[in-house]
């Protein structure tokens, strides 16, 4: 997995555009050429709350091109509601890019990208990078209902093959997206996934059974987002290249160590997670 050696900074940006691809889902684009220039697929930013209250909000970077960076998010609480209230011309300060990002260095030729709900927000950049390198990309996209399968056209326009599943059967196959992945033929040589934790666990199990390496972008509550508070940990293999440097096994000879999702992650190899 790549480490974050890019220049991270607080960027004072201006909102360029705001749309609602579905009720309760907001796509917010802002002017941030320096951030766009250094962002890698799978990284995130912290949006400093415009009102100055509450902790900053971690958001996956959806688009980063030329002068514009965009985030795509589900409005689920006071902090995202505040961000959703921004309009073109409003100022927004963001810290980023943060976290590692997907490791696409192995020149994968056939990649399955698994998205659960708003997890799609971290997957456009890797899809664009993979297609630019002429890889075949199949997107397995699940959501509660058809209306929440946002940005399908966008991914299709990038050149993905798209397979959908919905909980209520209102679009694509009824059921979980991991069911679609298990039947993927021919088998992909790499899986990238982002979504709710149960979906990521199911993806990890499916990939383990099929013998396909998988990279998972985890979701966890962050406080600082920069590795300072150790609040967002996940247990991983002590021998992982991503394991924070730590002394040998202790406390019962544990072979795991708690890695920070914000710093060592948010993307981890599925087979190295001990969750």
């Amino acid at each position: 997995m790549l480490t974050n050696q890019m220049p991270t900074a607080v960027h004072a940006t201006t909102v360029l555009d705001r749309t609602e691809p579905a009720p309760g889902i907001v796509l917010l684009g802002f002017y941030a050429p320096e951030l766009a220039a250094v962002t890698r697929p799978g990284q995130f930013l912290m949006a400093i709350p415009p009102g100055g209250e509450r902790t900053a909000t971690a958001l996956g970077i959806y688009e980063a091109q030329d002068h514009r960076v965009a985030v795509l998010f589900f409005v689920c609480g006071p902090r995202t509601r505040e961000l959703a209230g921004l309009r073109a011309g409003d100022g927004l300060e963001v810290t980023g890019p943060l976290g590692n990002g997907f490791d696409l260095s192995g020149s994968p030729r056939d990649v399955a990208v698994v998205a659960g709900g708003i997890g799609i927000a971290s997957l456009l950049l890797p899809v664009q990078a993979l297609i630019a390198s002429s890889a075949r990309v199949r997107l397995y996209y699940g959501a509660r209902s058809a209306a929440l399968l946002v940005e399908r056209d966008r991914f299709a326009a990038e050149g993905c093959e798209i397979y959908c599943a919905t909980d209520d059967g209102s679009y694509g196959r009824r059921g979980f997206v991991t069911g679609l992945l298990a039947g993927a033929e021919p088998r992909p040589d790499l899986v990238l996934a982002c979504g709710p934790t149960p979906m990521l666990r199911a993806t990890a199990a499916a990939c383990s059974a099929l013998g396909i390496p998988a990279q998972l972008s985890l979701e966890e509550t962050f406080a600082c987002g920069v590795g300072g508070c150790w609040g967002c940990v996940v247990p991983i293999d002590r021998n992982s290249a991503q394991a924070p440097r730590f002394p040998g096994p202790d406390e019962g000879g544990s072979d795991t160590v708690n890695a920070r999702v914000c710093k060592e992650g948010p993307v981890f190899w599925a087979h190295e997670l001990r969750w």
Partner: peptide
């Protein structure tokens, strides 16, 4: 004195 793994997640709640 000794290394500590810390508590299990979740460790934060807003």
């Amino acid at each position: 004195q000794r290394p500590r793994l810390g508590n299990r997640a979740p460790r934060l709640v807003a």
